[in-house]
Design a protein around this nucleic acid. Structure first.
Length: 631
DNA sequence: GAGTTTGAAACT
DNA sequence: CAGTTTCAAACTC
């Protein structure tokens, strides 16, 4: 089923992986600050993320078909990196803690789309009924054809130890775990949540991309012992329930039909037994598997691969999205700001799970698929979306980083899984690098996750920007650890402070530092650098102007050619004219040398002479006789 | 492009 | 925590 409206289509390039959280409350606030598609910063507004990614949101709408009094407002959530946006919307009941923490690396827009109370969502295309815990919900998937959506439904009475009293969930927490069949996303796990995160990750990686039609399966074990059973729902052929011991949520997978096929729909719902020590089975009496689950490996064939320079065409329509927290994770929250890009935290130990997927992680992934998918799907291609995003790098501002082309690494021995590798250190995947034996990619996510964990074990702030705000009264930007240079005088790019274009501070332990405010060496270097920059700019401007003039000249002479009355430049810029011009320029050079002018002045004199020569040539071009050049 | 220098990261 | 080794980037020729 393809239920993407044209206008939504514009907003929903499904290459973007969003982490989302949706909470449906029986008694939602009358008005949300985020209503009508606008987001407003909350009191807990996160720190604006320094990234240049423009993440276009994908929208998932969830509607309950409960009576009007219980009808929830449909919320659409999305993530963007727009720093002006906030992560929390008070009316959504999204727990601000987790989201707020996440937003250190994400910015989230929550757009509330109020469902009309009387709307009959059951008739909407793309709507699926699911009945976890005996409750009936309508799930409307707004997405591209062929997408799968995993929802994390509330385990009934989701309090630890509540056991059998989990018949209802109020408020009802829905979490969109994945959107689209994206299969190349396997977030990294850290800390306590590793095990559970692994479950979810595996769930996503294997369940979501293993949908094939018409092969009944009663019980499927995926991702190891954590995943025991899939409980298909009788109410819909495109919903699967997946049982996930260790999670207190039901996981429901919805798979919208691939275009032209009504059989490729499946959903899964998983339950968590972390509190009850027993897997919770929902609607077991209605087990009816209409869609088989096949091993993830088989689907890897369609996992989007990084686009090659040769313009590889991707044919897959499956996409996968990420997990987002709907509730706080108090135990691990304090560490969230230390998480490296690509870190995933997932359900476990009584916590709601979520995934941290920094925008650049997303963008790097989307880069690999966006162009082709956009072209194949007919999506418009926002220019900003293809921008490589990254965290502040070496203290460079976002704009600096954005203007800088991504620097490929050349790692040989580290497998790009140590901080030696700039890509890894910046939380980026290696892409178009010159590295050998690279493990900093999706194909080696396990190793990468371990490496990230190891780095964090050594230094919890390993992935934090090194350049941060200084103390009161100090420079705005300073190296968090300071440098330890001994031989470079901190005036070469070996020095991290100098490289970041900041001066050394009291934090530094450098020897023979010359990178301080009053340093004459530093001033000289700065002047040279400024002069070089100005020169480059001037040269660029001159080239542009010259090109423009040449183009203009050509344009003006073209009609003359067609009319037979003019001449092309080559007809009057003869060999003799060129030689004469060169002689003039050489003479200027000699003159400059003779009067001992500095190089810059000499260059200017030569250029000016060249300009005069050109003018003479141009003026002569309009005459019938041959141009003459006289210095 | 090869070789050297450098300092952060990793290791002991 | 200090000393040493490893590593990749910066730099030089």
């Amino acid at each position: 089923m393809d239920v993407v409206s044209p206008e939504l289509n514009i907003l929903l390039p499904d290459e973007i992986m969003d982490t989302e959280a949706i909470v449906m409350d029986d008694d939602p606030p009358a008005e949300s600050p985020a209503a009508s598609g606008q987001s407003q910063p909350s009191d807990d507004a996160p720190i604006p993320m320094e990234t240049d990614v423009l993440a276009v949101p994908e929208i998932v709408s969830l509607c309950s078909d409960a009576p009007p009094t219980q009808r929830t407002q449909a919320l659409t959530t999305s993530i963007t990196t727009d720093s002006t946006l906030c992560s929390t919307t008070s009316a959504t009941h999204l727990t601000s803690g987790g989201l707020q923490k996440l937003s250190a690396n994400h910015q989230i827009i929550l757009n509330k789309v109020a469902s009309s109370p009387g709307a009959d969502t059951t008739r909407s295309p793309g709507t699926t009924t699911i009945t976890p815990g005996g409750q009936k919900f309508m799930v409307t998937a707004i997405g591209k054809s062929g997408q799968s959506i995993v929802l994390q439904l509330p385990h009934t009475g989701s309090k630890p130890g509540s056991g059998q009293g989990e018949a209802k969930a109020n408020p009802q927490h829905f979490k969109v775990l994945t959107i689209g069949g994206r299969t190349d996303l396997k977030p990294v796990m850290v800390g306590q949540a590793v095990s559970s995160a692994s479950q979810i990750s595996t769930l996503q990686a294997q369940q979501l991309k293993t949908v094939q039609p018409m092969k009944p399966v009663q019980t499927v074990t995926v991702g190891g012992p954590q995943f025991k059973t899939i409980f298909p729902l009788s109410t819909s052929s495109n919903v699967q329930q997946i049982q996930v011991p260790g999670s207190r949520f039901h996981y429901v997978r919805l798979v919208t039909a691939t275009t032209g096929s009504s059989t490729g729909q499946a959903g899964s719902h998983c339950t968590n037994s972390s509190m009850t020590a027993k897997p919770m089975v929902v609607n077991t009496a209605q087990v009816r598997m209409s869609v088989p689950i096949i091993p993830a490996q088989t689907m890897k064939q369609v996992v989007p691969k990084p686009l090659t320079s040769s313009g590889q065409v991707l044919t897959t329509q499956t996409q996968q999205r990420l997990i987002m927290p709907a509730t706080p994770l108090p135990q691990i929250q304090p560490n969230l700001t230390n998480l490296p890009p690509g870190t995933m935290l997932a359900p476990g130990s009584g916590n709601m799970g979520y995934t941290v997927l920094p925008a650049h992680y997303v963008t790097q992934l989307q880069q690999s698929a966006y162009v082709t998918l956009a072209s194949s799907s007919g999506f418009p291609t926002p220019t900003g979306i293809q921008t490589q995003a990254r965290l502040p790098l070496n203290g460079l501002s976002t704009s600096d980083a954005a203007s800088r082309p991504r620097k490929p690494c050349n790692c040989n021995k580290s497998q790009c899984l140590k901080l030696y590798c700039d890509c890894f250190a910046n939380g980026e995947f290696c892409q178009s690098c010159n590295c050998t034996n690279c493990f900093n990619n999706l194909e080696h996510e396990t190793e990468r996750a371990k490496a990230i964990k190891a780095c964090l074990d050594r230094n919890p702030e390993a992935f934090k920007p090194k350049i941060g705000k200084g103390k009161e009264g100090e420079s705005d930007r300073r190296h968090s650890k300071g440098c330890n240079c001994k031989r470079s005088g901190c005036l070469k790019n070996y020095c991290e402070c100098y490289e970041a274009k900041i001066m050394c501070s009291s934090t530094c332990k450098c020897v023979g530092c010359k990178n301080f405010e009053e340093s004459p060496e530093r001033k000289t270097l700065m002047h040279l650098a400024d002069a070089a920059e100005v020169r480059v700019q001037q040269q660029t401007a001159a080239k542009t102007k010259l090109s423009s003039q040449i183009s203009d000249l050509f344009t003006r002479t073209t009609p003359a050619i067609t009319s037979g009355g003019g001449r092309m430049p080559f007809t009057f810029v003869t060999k003799e004219v060129a030689e004469a011009t060169c002689e003039c320029l050489l003479e200027q050079a000699e003159q400059a040398e003779l009067i001992q002018q500095p190089q810059a002045t000499a260059e200017r004199m030569i250029l000016e002479e060249f300009g005069r020569c050109l003018m003479r040539i141009i003026s002569s071009a309009g005459k019938t006789d041959c141009p003459s050049i006289n210095c």
